[in-house]
Design a protein around this nucleic acid. Structure first.
Length: 725
DNA sequence: TCCATTGACGTTTTT
DNA sequence: CGTCAATGGA
């Protein structure tokens, strides 16, 4: 068979990765070096050249998007159905295993996935029930503790706390939480992975089966794996599985959520004769951008070592803009985009990247004002919306009435006279008799614990759910969804909200019904023995839907640096490059390698750019209500200055206060101010400084001056003895 | 039960 | 400065 198409379009190291080994392979794939291509070609190589059965291949990614892309590209390359291939996210694959082996994993067949919101609500409830002070023991922190423990593969009983009061309290909460989950058949995201690992540990027959079957393991973004994912993988590989991992230690930016770059090193130690291949030729960015990125990342220690290069020209220098303040920064960025558009280029070629989500607001404002369409990544997703989750909770309850999270959510939604008091009676009953809320509610009714009115309300709710279940048993999924929406009368609950809000909620419910109606049971879920309903509910949890509409509308892309990973744009703005913001203050405070992760984040951001990279920082930024005088990010100083071209603001037009508010209202008109914005003045005590802004009028006029030594200060004009310089 | 006011707090996010 | 959640009065 002619296999030249698998290698022809690859460069030398890529070929080596794809075809060069019959053992384990570690591919250190730099940004833009054709990582996905290598993965896909390797997969095709295994099947077409080594004649490996598609059934023996497992390819794992982190996001659904990456999994989908891999499946699609593999299908195109192979020209055969990719159906038998196991390609999925860690969570998706773990979920599938648990569905197929729910008995061995000690789960009820109807188990449900708990998303992080459900998890937090449940924890809040437990913390309250335990009589703990929520201010001292926030649910968020419990969630963090439990997930971190699970990510490390730890159960309450194997956490050592040596009478450490804080830890032992959280361990207790972990235990209680796990009891609830087990009773109700609820599995959170971290639990999916942990259970899947325990399945290997406790069921040697199951493990053995998969070891024999899945001989070829391919893992994407290996630097992002956490401890439990690595352990799971290592067990599955055993002594005979061949493992092909692709990753980049320089792009490890998720250490804060448990990812372990060390796994790359562990892989080299734990698996024999690993062949390491470096992909360093970059097909994305200009030479200047790569040189600057290389120079920056060279400041990190303990790297595996990698230097990106390109056969393409050096391109334009990186543009550096020292904005006056954050408004000026936004103004500048939007102005540049406007020019780009004037040159006939596309808006979706431009991306504005920032460190914190809050930074998007100003850019949105200025883009709106300039009538440039934009799209912000990372908002709330479809299946995370309140109304969607409410309706799904009813559906879940039909499917599994012991789902406490669902029960809690809808028992009084819309209001049906089951108030806090009644619910707490049910909770007490549940707790005392180790029952789920549903069971406890039934108990309370039959024991006549409630007052008459509450009792009839609760039994009414039980009848509602049971009635729906009986009636809808044989309905299609779409009809069930619509039926649940109608009969639950959820709409009544939203009617009390503002009109516009209510309308979008109803619209979303309509969309949900349509989605259920259009849902087709995927092959892999059918193979795993899932019903249509189970599959639909799992999809809602595991792939909460696109962050927003598709990118078909030609929009400027706004996102955090984290969500930019894996993407590329002709024109990129790295905004807010100030010490304290990026690198973030919190990473400067503790020394646990956090700064290096920030640097990697900066490296990721820079290497998103294909043609043009802009870096901007504000000299003054309003944070938490107070003005901050900022230093440019230390990362800027770590880039070779000859690659940076500073853009000098044009003094006359770039002052935002002049532009934004022509101050005709005040006693001082623009011309009457004794000084100009941007002018350097001398203060008897603070020395030289630059005039930033004026405020107020007449004798109350205050002036904001950025003193070169003393920092920025507001002074009352009448008292400040200022001299022009 | 609802809305409004007050108060604390303030990275990064996928599954 | 803004947001979100918790609290308390009507």
């Amino acid at each position: 068979m002619d296999v030249s198409h698998l290698l022809d379009e690859l460069n030398e190291p890529q070929r080596e990765a794809v075809a060069g080994s019959d053992g384990h392979v570690l591919v250190l794939a730099g940004a833009g070096s054709g990582k996905t291509r290598v993965l896909v070609h390797r997969l095709a190589w295994l099947i077409q050249v080594e004649h490996v059965s598609p059934l023996s291949v497992l390819a794992v990614t982190f996001t659904n998007k990456a999994a989908g892309e891999m499946r699609e590209r593999t299908g195109k390359l192979l020209q055969v159905s990719t159906r038998p291939l196991w390609i999925g996210t860690f969570h998706g694959i773990a979920h599938r295993l648990l569905r197929m082996h729910w008995k061995e994993a000690a789960l009820p067949e109807t188990f449900q996935i708990l998303d992080s919101e459900d998890q937090q609500r449940l924890l809040r409830r437990i913390i309250r029930e335990e009589g703990m002070d929520e201010a001292h023991w926030p649910a968020r922190q419990a969630q963090w503790f439990i997930n971190a423990r699970k990510d490390e593969g730890e159960r309450p009983q194997n956490i050592e706390h040596f009478d450490h009061p804080v830890t032992s309290t959280w361990v207790h909460v972990y235990q209680r939480y796990q009891d609830y989950c087990n009773r109700g058949g609820l599995v959170d995201f971290a639990e999916l992975l942990l259970r899947a690992h325990e399945l290997w540990l406790e069921q040697p027959t199951v493990l053995d089966h998969y070891r024999k079957r899945l001989q070829h393991l391919l893992i994407d973004e290996f630097q992002d794996t956490n401890a439990i994912q690595y352990a799971w993988l290592r067990m599955l590989a055993g002594d005979s599985g061949r493992v092909f991992v692709v990753g980049d230690d320089d792009q490890s930016i998720y250490g804060w959520r448990g990812a372990k770059v060390e796994n790359v090193q562990h892989f080299l130690n734990d698996f024999p004769d690993v062949r390491t291949v470096r992909l360093e030729q970059n097909y994305r960015s200009t030479g200047n951008i790569l040189d600057a990125a290389n120079a920056l990342i060279a400041h990190n220690e303990g790297r595996m070592g990698k230097k990106l290069w390109t056969a393409d020209p050096a391109g334009k220098p990186i543009q550096l803009y020292a904005a006056f303040n954050e408004q000026d920064e936004a103004r500048f960025v939007v102005e540049q985009i406007d020019q780009w558009l004037d040159e006939g280029r596309r808006a979706d070629d431009c991306a504005i990247l920032y460190r914190t989500t809050a930074q998007s607001r100003l850019f949105e404002e200025y883009l709106l004002r300039a009538s440039i369409p934009y799209r912000v990544y990372g908002g709330q997703r479809f299946f995370e919306r309140t109304e969607v989750k409410d309706a799904l909770a009813y559906l879940r309850l039909l499917h599994n009435p012991n789902d406490d999270a669902a029960m809690e959510r809808v028992i009084n939604k819309p209001v049906r006279a089951i108030g806090e008091k009644t619910i707490s009676l049910i909770r007490i009953q549940a707790r005392e008799s180790n029952l789920t809320l549903w069971q406890a509610a039934g108990e309370c009714v039959s024991q006549g614990i409630f007052a008459t009115r509450a009792g009839s309300a609760v039994s009414g709710f039980i009848k509602l759910i049971e009635g729906m279940r009986e009636r809808m048993q044989d309905w299609t999924l779409g009809n069930q969804m619509q039926g649940v929406i109608d009969e639950s009368n959820l709409v009544a609950h939203y009617e009390k909200e503002p009109r516009e809000r209510m309308e979008t909620r109803i619209e979303n419910l309509r969309e949900l019904a349509t989605a259920a109606d259009a849902f087709i049971l995927p092959h892999e879920d059918a193979d795993a023995g899932l019903t249509e309903l189970q599959s639909f509910l799992s999809h809602a949890a595991l792939e909460a839907g696109e962050t927003q509409g598709e990118s078909w509308d030609d929009c400027v892309q706004l996102m955090t640096l984290h969500s930019a990973k894996g993407l590329e744009f002709p024109m990129v703005f790295l905004a807010g490059m100030e010490d304290g913001l990026f690198p973030h203050q919190r990473s400067l405070e503790d020394s646990g390698g956090r700064l290096e992760e920030e640097r990697r984040l900066c490296y990721v951001g820079m290497t998103r750019a294909r043609e043009q990279l802009f870096i901007s920082y504000a000299e003054i930024r309003r944070m938490f209500g107070s003005q901050n005088h900022c230093r440019p990010s230390r990362f800027i100083g770590e880039m070779p200055s000859e690659l940076l071209q500073e853009i000098r603001p044009r003094m006359a037009t770039s002052r935002p206060y002049v532009a934004a508010q022509p101050v005709s209202s005040a006693g001082f008109s623009g011309q009457d101010w004794p000084f100009q914005l941007g002018q350097v003045v001398l203060h008897p005590k603070f020395g030289e400084g630059t005039v930033l802004a004026f405020e107020g009028s007449g004798e109350h006029t205050r002036v904001h001056i950025n003193f070169h030594d003393a920092g920025a200060k507001w002074l009352v004009m009448a008292y400040a003895k200022l001299q022009a310089r």
